[in-house]
Design a protein around this nucleic acid. Structure first.
Length: 124
DNA sequence: GGCATGACATTGC
DNA sequence: AGCAATGCCATGC
């Protein structure tokens, strides 16, 4: 597994047990290889649909050798936020393609690759 | 505690 | 379709 469920994370965040950044990291670890999510989607999964920018802020603070799959988080329109970054941009695109996410003209087909959090596993 | 910052999202041209 | 203007809100100083 990859740690606590999304619901647990959201609750911990709501209770103030963890900071927003930590919640973001935990949530991003739930995105499976071969799928992508928008910053807003991650924020929404945490119960803060308007905090998309903060998700990016949190990911920007990650160290380069992190185990958090930050490359699976892109913009809601399918474009890569870091494509202007000479280092991480090409890396992100390479990582995604390596995982089977097709990129056409600097964009991902969100309708096809967007991550759908599994809400059926929510605890009774 | 107030103010500026930013890997976004949405809307209006 | 593409670009500018606005709204958002966690962080850090």
């Amino acid at each position: 597994m990859q740690g606590p469920s999304l619901v647990d994370i959201a609750e911990a965040l709501a209770d103030g047990d963890v900071g927003f950044r930590m919640a973001v990291y935990a949530a991003v670890r739930h995105i499976p290889a071969g799928a992508v999510a928008g910053y807003g989607h991650v924020a929404a999964a945490l119960g803060s649909p308007r905090a998309a920018r903060q998700v990016g802020y949190a990911l920007a603070a990650l160290p380069p050798e992190t185990d958090v799959p930050w490359w699976r988080v892109i913009r809601s329109d399918g474009s890569i936020a870091l494509q202007g970054d000479p280092n991480r941009g090409p890396l992100q695109a390479a990582m995604l393609r390596q995982e089977g996410v097709h990129i056409h003209d600097h964009r991902v087909d969100m309708a096809r690759f967007r991550w759908r959090p599994d809400l059926s596993i929510r605890p009774a």
